[in-house]
Design a protein around this nucleic acid. Structure first.
Length: 488
RNA sequence: GGUCGGGUGGCCGAGUGGCUAGGCAGAGGUCUGCAAAACCUUUUACAGCGGUUCGAACCCGCUCCUGACCUCCA
């Protein structure tokens, strides 16, 4: 199938037709979390965005190898290439082994990803599991002349690199500006140029995470792991490299430099970057202290939250904005998404009850389907897709109410649209109502109320309706039957 | 200070030259024993000022506001 998918490429700052280098195979690398603390909602947004992208590529029939790393070593605290990495520091703080920190937050991350219904990546490599690959790559970079060793540490020589390559391809910045504008850092630096960054860092005696290397005992720099692991699993050049926008200027710029220096080519064709989640229009981040933890969001246990929201509501909330736009977080916005999501899912739950007619008064379903594809083909425009799906919601409700007629064929298309776009592509899940036993009990109570209504015993029927409402069950009368849902 | 974005109705959020985005909230109606839901109709927009154009939220200029990156963060 001839794909019409267009993706926005940070390298060219344009939307480009997506052409994988070896159809139908697609290699996609996404920078994963640094597991030294709980993932916050902003992190989750990025992974939900790439889950949407992954799901849509799969839906289009591509064979995707999706690699998302776990950073469990080498990510430094502070702004100097010395001192502790985040794990060593956290381990001291919590009086645990660094790998206990890693294990704890990796499990937490996976649990949150599961709640958000993201598909697991094909490969989830860790930095500590690929120390030798990183060392090999550093050796190669030194051999090519783009890195130098000082006192057991190895640094990437940005100045030398920029003489032959464009260091600022991703950001379009002028190198001179970077050189002049970089803030003067306190402390003595052993780097030659202040844009230089560490590939390998000498471990101080008390540093716990340490590995032998040709340059002595140390640990890898933060950027080299992604270059080494993407290369190992996806090769010298793969199709998509993704991550949060905050990684563009530093992490990804350095990744490109390392890969280019080592293999002589750009690591990826398309660079995709997701935008930030904001709170009161300020970026949500760990250091700003305005980061919500998913758990706090689910329970509502946070000073800024009026109540808790289910994971699917939050996923829906994220998908209602385009991945390259900032998304502002507020109770009001989440309330709106919660209701919208429930409206969508209530309609979905009516699908099996729809009765076909001999004639059709539906809107043109095939053109709706086409518009759904157009939306997603336009750089994964999920908000537009959702707008189209609400047209389908309106139709489902109308058919259910008998105000619109649909043929067997119409119903088949509607069901296909819902399955493909609501579940497969958007990755939404139906709210799990109570256990089955509970539904049966409610159905039984509804039956008693229906008998009361037939007998015009409205005192009893109201008592049942109000009583159930107080327990969180909303009854909905219809000419033929009574349905129920959770109180919104 | 430098670089790059953004300012859309009560809120969130699409849209890049002419055609209803959508969700939530508000108003009216249909249905209904009541309630809810659903459906129909409907009010409040494109930061400001100029310019280009037959025509601009969309292109250009200026002004104001705001965010991100430049230092760890998805």
């Amino acid at each position: 199938m001839d794909s019409k998918l267009k993706v926005y490429n940070t390298l060219t700052r344009k939307k480009e037709l997506f052409k994988p280098q070896k159809y139908p195979f697609v290699g996609m690398y996404v920078c994963g979390p640094t597991v030294y603390s709980d993932v916050h909602l902003g992190n989750c947004r990025t992974f939900v965005s790439f889950d949407l992208i992954y799901r849509y590529l799969l839906h289009l029939g591509y064979k995707v190898r999706y690699v998302r790393n776990i950073t469990d070593a080498g990510h430094l605290e502070g702004d100097r290439d010395e001192g502790d990495d985040k794990f060593t520091k956290k381990a001291k703080l919590e009086k645990l082994e660094p790998m206990e920190i890693v294990q704890k937050y990796t499990i937490g991350f996976h649990e949150v990803m599961r709640l958000f219904n993201t598909l697991p990546p094909s490969i989830e490599p860790t930095a500590t599991g690929h120390i030798s690959e990183q060392i090999e790559m550093i050796k190669q970079i030194i051999k090519q002349g783009f890195a130098y060793e000082i006192n057991g540490s190895v640094y990437f020589d940005v100045e030398k690199y920029s003489a032959k390559h464009n260091y600022t391809v991703l950001t379009n910045r002028l190198l001179e500006d970077l050189l002049t504008n970089t803030r003067e850092l306190g402390g003595q630096d052993e780097k030659r140029g202040h844009l230089d960054f560490a590939l390998w860092i000498k471990a101080k005696p008390e540093h716990i995470m340490r590995w032998p290397s040709p340059w002595g005992i140390g640990f890898p720099g933060w950027h080299i792991e992604c270059s080494a692991m993407s290369n190992k699993y996806l090769g010298d050049h793969f199709d998509i490299h993704g991550g949060g926008m905050d990684l563009t200027a530093t992490h990804h710029t350095n990744e490109i430099a390392q890969s280019e220096a080592c293999h002589g080519k750009q690591p990826a064709t398309y660079w995709l970057h997701t935008n930030m989640l904001t709170v009161n229009s300020t970026r949500m981040s760990k250091s700003a202290g305005n980061g919500f933890l998913p758990g706090e969001l689910f329970t509502g246990n946070h000073p800024l939250l009026h109540r808790g929201y289910p994971p699917m509501t939050i996923r829906f909330f994220m998908l209602q904005a385009h991945y390259r736009s900032t998304l502002d977080f507020s109770n009001e916005a989440l309330d709106a998404s919660d209701k919208g999501y429930n409206r969508l899912m209530n309609a979905v739950s009516l699908l099996d009850k729809l009765k076909p007619s001999n004639q059709s008064s539906c809107d043109d379903l095939l053109s709706i389907q086409e518009r759904c594809y157009e939306a997603m083909n336009d750089d994964f425009n999920s908000p537009v897709l959702i707008a189209e799906l609400f047209e389908v919601v309106r139709m489902i409700n109308s058919i259910y109410d008998g105000k619109m007629q649909a043929t067997q064929k119409d119903l088949a298309i509607i069901k296909q649209l819902i399955q493909e776009f609501v579940f497969d592509v958007l990755g939404l899940q139906e709210v799990e109502y109570q256990a089955h036993d509970m539904s049966k009990i409610i159905d039984w109570i509804i039956q008693i109320r229906t008998e009361a209504k037939t007998n015009r015993d409205y005192t009893l029927s109201d008592k049942i309706r109000i009583g159930l409402h107080n327990l969180g069950i909303q009854l909905k009368d219809n000419k033929e039957e009574t349905t129920w849902s959770k109180v919104l």
